[in-house]
């Protein structure tokens, strides 16, 4: 079942083409890895999906609930609407939505390559900010909360309980009342993922979660991501340079180079693809031009 469908995505910054006509799909309950050499355009793809960039061209559709909703996509595109929410399921055209709505309505959560926690707030507060939307609703957009109604206190207790659950999972319960900026690097990475999970996402976009981790921390991260997929039925879109992590946990790998998709398939197939090896390791000059001719550069 398809969760995310990216079609003919192109992103131009002035004359620079960062992504050129990229199409791929991410399946529900799968870990889809997006790999490629530095500057291949991976983070740009993330920024387009999460609404931080408006793509120059292309369509990005995300669906959850009943897959039958997919049939509405053409009608939706025609009507110029952002999305469709009904009881059976929801379908969103991400390129038409601002960033905060992508997170709020389409339930796409993300982490950042350079960690973006709220360093001066405690670990617990970080996880509560992630539950802003439900808490805001429970506090009656602050009006009922100001009056001190018990319904808000209940909602806040539930939110703290949820935060605590995630803290237990990443083993940071003891440090819940410490500022996030005081945590060691590896813990900050994990906290950022936990914070993203607190928004109740259907798609989790992780931008290099293993960057700066040592091998044992990387292995632990791989285990953690696998449990997320298996136990929480979450779909993950992953950018990663650490090939041991990528090959171990991904169900599907997409390889980008210079903004163009050069391979797409299960990890063991992609690993042996000559174009991928060429992109990563470099090859003799004539072979490069041959490969480039093949992919149309």
């Amino acid at each position: 079942m398809t969760l995310l469908r990216v079609e003919h995505l192109t992103m131009r910054f002035g004359g620079l083409v960062a992504i050129n006509d990229l199409s791929f799909t991410a399946e529900r309950g799968h870990i889809t890895a997006l790999i490629g050499p530095n500057g291949a355009g991976k983070t740009t793809v993330f920024n387009c999906i999460t609404g931080f960039y408006k793509p120059s061209e292309g369509r990005m559709a995300l669906q959850f609930g009943d897959p039958a909703v997919w049939d509405e996509i053409e009608a939706l595109t025609e009507r110029g609407q952002r999305g469709l929410e009904c009881r059976a399921g929801s379908l969103f055209l991400l390129e038409r939505m601002p960033d905060f709505l992508v997170a709020q309505k389409a339930r796409v959560a993300r982490t950042f390559q350079n960690i973006r926690l709220f360093p001066g707030m405690t670990v617990l507060e970080n996880l509560l900010v992630a539950q802003h939307q439900p808490l805001m609703r429970a506090s009656g957009w602050s009006v009922l909360g100001m009056l001190g109604l018990p319904s808000y206190a209940r909602a806040e207790r539930a939110a703290i309980e949820k935060a605590r659950l995630w803290l237990d999972r990443i083993g940071l319960t003891e440090r819940a009342d410490d500022p996030a900026g005081a945590l060691p690097y590896g813990a900050q990475r994990e906290l950022e993922i936990a914070r993203a999970m607190c928004t109740d996402p259907v798609l989790l976009c992780l931008d290099e979660p293993a960057a700066g981790l040592n091998p044992s921390e990387s292995a632990e991260l791989a285990r953690f991501l696998r449990t997320l997929r298996n136990e929480h039925a979450i779909s993950i879109l992953l950018i990663e340079h650490d090939m041991s992590v990528v090959m171990e946990i991904s169900d599907h790998v997409i390889v980008l180079d210079h903004g163009v998709k050069i391979a797409d398939g299960p990890p063991d197939v992609v690993r042996d693809d000559p174009k991928v090896i060429a992109a990563y390791l470099g090859v003799e000059h004539d072979e490069v031009s041959q490969v480039e001719a093949e992919v149309g550069l």
Binding site: D99, F112, M121, Q131, S139, S142, G145
Partner: peptide, 22 residues
């Protein structure tokens, strides 16, 4: 209240706020 926490989160990191649906 959530609004106050959102203000402080905004001071700490606006991009992260947007990524969390605020």
């Amino acid at each position: 209240l959530p609004i106050g926490r959102a203000w402080e989160a905004l001071r700490e990191d606006e991009i992260a706020c947007r990524a969390l649906g605020i």
